[in-house]
Write a protein that binds this DNA or RNA. Structure first.
Length: 517
RNA sequence: GCGGGAGUAGCUCAGUUGGUAGAGCAUCAGCCUUCCAAGCUGAGGGUCGCGGAUUCGAGUUCCGUCUCCCGCUCCA
């Protein structure tokens, strides 16, 4: 199947079976915003639980946090999000460097000023004591031309910035023939505003002074709480803080279904370590995270590690775990060595000492941070992509037909167990109800009696239910039922008494977590 | 943001030179059969993405707009 078709089919399947709906569909939808439906919400919840338990349950030194989405605006000054994204930016197509457009113009103005100074110095030498600077700068043709140019440029710059006129800025750069300071190239892109943070106002008064942002990443919530958690939890390095939550980025182009959304959910763990040990822990977490993915049983060829050559301002090493989505290998999770950048920045901007007293070393320092950050929605898409199968099922008459089956990891499936009376008479529904009432305490169950048994199996296949329990006439005689396996479609007859124990082995998250320790 | 394609029932799609909207599957009720989607009877469900224009009359023609998909661009 062509990858493009596969992607379309997955999207259609996700909608048809209640995994993902376009947001506000009755009003025509909202670009790049999606809702998780009855099955999607549960699948997402199960992925979260797997991550949460793997972090918080399995690691005594990793503790949870749930920080608010609104944060003091200073946070974003400190993190670098405000300065980097509120300014008009321009890229040089040849050098691939990005600059602040207004700074390029400022640099140009400074250069013109330098030329004037040079003329003055020259004239001073020439005329000695007779030199009248005031007269010189108003009469010398070259200097007057420079001055005019500076004034002209400065006025245009101020006006462009005031009007938020990005085109005028670009025009100004062209007019002044500004070249890339590195490559000398004048091959520029358009000037663009990289304002990726959503803002809103706190309180009912509309006034710029109470402007707040929706967090563009959850990580800062962890950093600003580092001291609180470390002190109240009496945490010793190394330790980690784990958090799952929504983040918001006003992407210029949000596309590819739930891969890039403007509202998305992150699962992040920031691991605080002694300076100098970050490389060791970076390697450690890289391995641990790969293991987490592999434990799900998804084909290992669907994953690959990608090392960043270009590093973000805060990092000194970075790996992506990429997944083979229908549209190619793309980032699923990032493992970054963030150094002490974030905590140091918050220390500086808040004026509060954010340090750790190391009694072994007998010194105070700002801890280093190793981050693992995974997109929950991306993981959801990855799980769905890996699970989607179209299979030919042979029929008795020698022909075959197609079935669509989601081979989800049993632990993550939105419905873990379907309980189906073979027919809806002869007391089978009653017996089935008795059984499901017991099982639903431990498993996510669904009861179905409508339509033929084969049809019900297919429906359960389509939403990825790993096991179907069928109650037939024999059940009434000897208290046994059949368990049908989603992937092999084979059935096994077992006693009702053993059901809970058998299923527990198959779907309890405990057994998945065991693979990680 | 630019270019291309699409939008009619929950899904897949018909709908003729413009004349009051259809099928199959799905859903619901009832009957029948019962271990891998296919029996019978009946019912519900659509302001044809939205808005405007032309027309006696628009799913159909024209303009605008929104949304989705693909490619380019972007992605600290």
């Amino acid at each position: 199947m062509a990858q493009e078709d596969l992607f379309k089919k997955i999207i259609a399947h996700a909608k048809e079976y209640g995994f993902i709906f376009p947001s506000t569909e009755i009003y025509d939808g909202l670009s790049a915003v999606y809702d998780y439906g009855q099955n999607g919400a549960q699948l997402k919840e199960n992925i979260k639980k797997y991550w949460w338990d793997a972090m918080v349950k399995l690691n005594e030194n990793i503790v949870p946090l749930d920080a608010a989405i609104f944060m003091h605006p200073k946070t974003w000054e400190a993190s670098g999000h405000l300065s980097a994204f509120n300014d008009p930016m321009i890229d040089n197509k040849d050098s691939q460097k990005r600059y602040r457009a207004d700074e390029l113009v400022e640099d140009y103005i400074e250069k013109q000023q330098a030329k004037i100074d040079k003329e003055i110095t020259k004239a001073k030498k020439k005329f000695g004591d007779d030199f009248d600077e005031e007269q010189f700068v108003t009469t010398n043709k070259r200097v007057v031309a420079y001055k005019e140019k500076i004034e002209n440029t400065r006025n245009k710059l101020i006006k462009a910035l005031e009007d938020d006129d990005l085109e005028a800025l670009k025009q100004l750069i062209d007019e002044c023939e500004i070249a890339d300071p590195v490559s000398g190239s004048k091959n520029w892109t358009e000037v663009r505003q990289f304002n990726l943070m959503f803002d809103t106002r706190l309180g009912s008064v509309s006034d710029d002074s109470n402007k707040v942002y929706l967090r563009p990443e959850t990580a800062q919530g962890i950093f600003v709480n580092y001291l609180n958690v470390q002190k109240t939890g009496r945490m010793k390095l190394p330790f980690g803080i784990a958090q799952i939550g929504k983040a918001f980025r006003n992407e210029i182009v949000a596309r590819q279904f739930i891969f890039r959304m403007r509202e998305f959910e992150q699962m992040e763990m920031q691991y605080f370590v002694q300076p100098g040990e970050e490389q060791k822990w970076f390697e450690h977490w890289k391995n641990v995270r790969v293991k987490w993915h592999n434990a799900l049983g998804i084909d290992e060829n669907m994953f690959r590690l990608h090392e960043h050559d270009k590093l973000a301002h805060y990092a000194n090493a970075a790996y992506d775990i990429e997944f083979k989505f229908p549209f190619g290998f793309k980032e699923l999770e990032g493992i970054h060595s963030r150094t002490d950048f974030d905590l140091s920045q918050h220390q500086e901007y808040s004026g509060k000492k954010i340090q750790y007293f190391d009694s072994e070393r007998n010194e105070s320092y700002v801890p280093y941070v190793v981050e693992t950050s995974i997109g929950l929605d991306r993981m959801f898409l990855a799980v769905l992509t890996a699970a989607y199968h179209e299979e030919e099922v042979p029929k008795e008459n020698g022909k075959s037909e197609q079935r669509v089956v989601l081979k989800l990891p049993p632990t993550l499936a939105p419905i873990q167990l379907a309980v189906l009376p073979l027919v809806k008479k002869d007391g089978l529904p009653k017996k089935a109800r008795e059984i499901i009432d017991e099982l639903k305490l431990d498993f996510i169950c669904q009861y179905e009696e409508k339509d033929s048994i084969g049809k019900r199996y297919r429906r359960q296949d389509a939403i990825g239910t790993p096991y179907c329990i069928t109650i037939d006439h024999q059940t009434l005689e000897d208290d046994t039922v059949t368990i049908r396996d989603r992937d092999t479609m084979e059935q096994e007859r077992v006693s009702v008494n053993e059901l809970s124990a058998i299923l527990d082995k198959k779907v309890n998250m405990k057994h998945l977590l065991k693979k990680l320790v």
